Simulated scan of single mutants.
Amino acid sequence: MRSLFIQYPRQIIIAAILFLIAIAVSVFAYQHSWQSPEAIVKINVTNHGVSLPDGFFLYQHLSAEGITVKSITSGSDSLIISFNSVDDSHAAEKVLKEILDSGYRIE
């Protein structure tokens, strides 16, 4: 009597590949479902000729309001501010809308 592996090697290999794919998809879906929404605020310039605000200036204002800033990075025509929580990012949006004029779009 021959073993099953010798009789049906192609089916076992296909089943193993499908099993590995299913595990990979499950792990990705699990990680994605537990990620919190991004806690960032993006500042864009709406008018040409207007420069981005100074990151340290923004940091000082946000810190004075008790908002903890994780990082401030500049992108192409934008400034991205990261926070530890979504609540901090919502609070920062309110503060930034108060201190920045209409030449900036805050997302």
Score class of each variant (00 low, 15 high):
residue 1 M to R: 14
residue 35 Q to P: 07
residue 59 Y to W: 11
residue 99 I to E: 00
residue 92 A to I: 00
residue 37 P to T: 15
residue 90 H to T: 14
residue 74 S to M: 08
residue 82 S to Y: 04
residue 99 I to D: 02
residue 1 M to K: 14
residue 64 A to K: 11
residue 16 A to S: 03
residue 54 D to H: 04
residue 8 Y to E: 09
residue 93 E to Q: 11
residue 63 S to H: 01
residue 49 G to Y: 05
residue 105 R to A: 13
residue 69 V to L: 08
residue 104 Y to G: 02
residue 46 T to Y: 06
residue 40 I to E: 07
residue 54 D to W: 04
residue 9 P to T: 11
residue 78 S to Y: 06
residue 28 F to W: 11
residue 12 I to T: 01
residue 8 Y to K: 15
residue 97 K to W: 09
residue 39 A to E: 02
residue 30 Y to C: 11
residue 22 A to Q: 10
residue 75 G to I: 02
residue 30 Y to M: 11
residue 51 S to F: 09
residue 63 S to P: 04
residue 68 T to R: 00
residue 98 E to A: 08
residue 62 L to D: 05
residue 37 P to V: 14
residue 59 Y to V: 01
residue 40 I to A: 10
residue 13 I to K: 10
residue 81 I to N: 02
residue 72 I to K: 01
residue 34 W to T: 15
residue 91 A to C: 06
residue 77 D to I: 11
residue 24 A to L: 13
residue 57 F to L: 13
residue 93 E to A: 07
residue 101 D to C: 06
residue 9 P to Y: 07
residue 38 E to L: 07
residue 64 A to R: 06
residue 51 S to M: 14
residue 51 S to Y: 09
residue 48 H to K: 15
residue 92 A to M: 07
residue 33 S to R: 14
residue 49 G to H: 06
residue 54 D to S: 06
residue 40 I to N: 08
residue 26 S to I: 12
residue 2 R to E: 09
residue 29 A to N: 05
residue 28 F to T: 12
residue 2 R to L: 08
residue 99 I to Y: 02
residue 59 Y to M: 02
residue 61 H to A: 03
residue 104 Y to R: 03
residue 37 P to F: 10
residue 72 I to F: 05
residue 29 A to Q: 05
residue 26 S to R: 15
residue 84 N to L: 01
residue 46 T to N: 10
residue 82 S to G: 04
residue 62 L to G: 01
residue 46 T to S: 14
residue 66 G to D: 00
residue 34 W to V: 14
residue 11 Q to V: 09
residue 79 L to H: 03
residue 7 Q to F: 10
residue 105 R to N: 14
residue 35 Q to W: 09
residue 85 S to E: 00
residue 55 G to N: 05
residue 40 I to H: 07
residue 82 S to K: 03
residue 33 S to F: 15
residue 39 A to T: 07
residue 13 I to F: 10
